[in-house]
Every structure is written in C-alpha cells, then in structure tokens.
Amino acid sequence: MRKGLLIDFTRCIGCGACMRGCREANGLPQPGPDVPRPDELDGDNYTVVLQHEDEEKGGLFYRRLCMHCEDATCVSVCAVHALRKRPDGAVMYDAGRCFGCRYCMTACPFHIPKYTWDTNVPVVSKCILCWPRLDKGQEPACAATCPTGATRFGAREVLLKVARERVHAQPERYVNHIFGEKEAGGTDVLMISPVPFEKLGFQTEVPTRPLPELTWMVQEKIPYVIVTGGFFLWGLRWIINRRIELAHGETGAGGSQEVSR
C-alpha cells in the first residue's frame, strides 16, 4: 500500500526537529549549534524547514523535501534503475548503482535531487522516506520526531482524506489546494498551507499528468522506426542502384565494376 506524509504548514513551529532526526536516521553530518540553517536542500540535507513572512497571514514555517511521486520522473529517467519506486511509496536511491549522470536532477519538476559536488565519489542526495525504517516497521524520522504533528505519516488515502477534511472545515485557515494531490500525476507527500504554494516557491505549474508519459510517447515507437527504416533504406538503395547499373549497362563496358564499388 502506498504510504506517505501529510505536512500541515499551519501546525509547524519551525523547531527543526525533523531536520535533526532526518540527518541522524540517514547518517548525514550534523552541523554545530552555531551553524545557520540552510535555506535550500543540499547534499547534506534531505529536508529543510524554511520561514516565510506573509503580508496577510503573518510568519509561517514550511518544509521542503522529495514529493515521492507515484509515477516519478527521476525513476523514469534513470538509465540504470538507481532510483526506484517501492510498493510502500518511497522513491529510493541506490548509490552503488548510480553512475552520476545527473539526469534525475535535470528532470525533476520539483528541483529536489541535489549532489555532493565536493568529493570525487559523489552521490545524489534526496529524501528516501526513511525506507530502511519503514522496513523495520518504524515511521520516517521526520514524522517520528515532529512534536506538533505537522508532519504525519500514514497511508496516502487516509492522509488525503484528513487533508480534505481540514481544508474544508477551516477554509479561512487554509488555501483550497492540497499540493501533491494532482501535481505530476499525484505524489505520496501531501502538503496543506495557509498561503498559496507558489508564494513559497513550490512548482504549482507542474502538469497534472505524469511527466514520464512525455518521453514514453516517443520512446515506445523505436521498434517501428527500426523495422520501417531498415526496410525503407534497403528498398531505396535497391531501386537507385539498379538504375545506376542499367544506365552503365547502356553506355557500355566497365559499368558493372563501377556499381560493385
């Protein structure tokens, strides 16, 4: 069953417990206490908590992390299946398989995958929904550490229902948009917010159809190109060469040798 996260920005207090829990669970380096919080995802942070000052709604906190698309663009572009969608919803990354082409980074409509540029054995860095914890029956670290329930783990259907109920019950508190319900064909991470998502830098322009369809439409025609093309080229050469042969035959000797070249 597809599981995922529901992130309710109205409940986030910006404590950053999810970021610390995430680093710990995924073996990422913990910065010292004086180091300011990153303002964007990077090679050492699978998630960040960011702050927004809104003219209407005042200050609020929100999170950024991999959306875990149901038909994920990164999974579709990865030539070696280093990125895979698990049945439980997690888009996992296999660093040993990856050869570092970074097509996933170019292709992701949400600008999520990052890279560890400053090493000569670089890896792609993105939230993996703590799949090793899921295998042990635990929740992802961010959901487990969240003190307010702003990040909640569960079955996608259930989370979607909860999100709808909250948005409909308090229309003055939320914008009527569940980010991830339809974006890129639907994602397993869902977000609800008091301010429009585009104001927070979320990619609301992403189409509602899964993006991998765009390349598959072309890719699936390749076998026909091979067969049709091969037959066409063979036929073309046969006709043209026959003509040359006949033309030389009429003008006299030496023609057939010319043709054989």
Binding site: C78, V80, F99, V123
Partner: peptide, 19 residues
Amino acid sequence: GKPWNIWHAMFWINHHSVM
C-alpha cells in the same frame, strides 16, 4: 560523477529512460 560505473548501463536496463 562516477565514470567507473558507466558499464552499469549495459546490465541494468530501464527501457523507459531515453538515456
């Protein structure tokens, strides 16, 4: 990033990938 893994393209095939 990891050119020594380039041969992986021959053994793990994702036919959905244009790459």
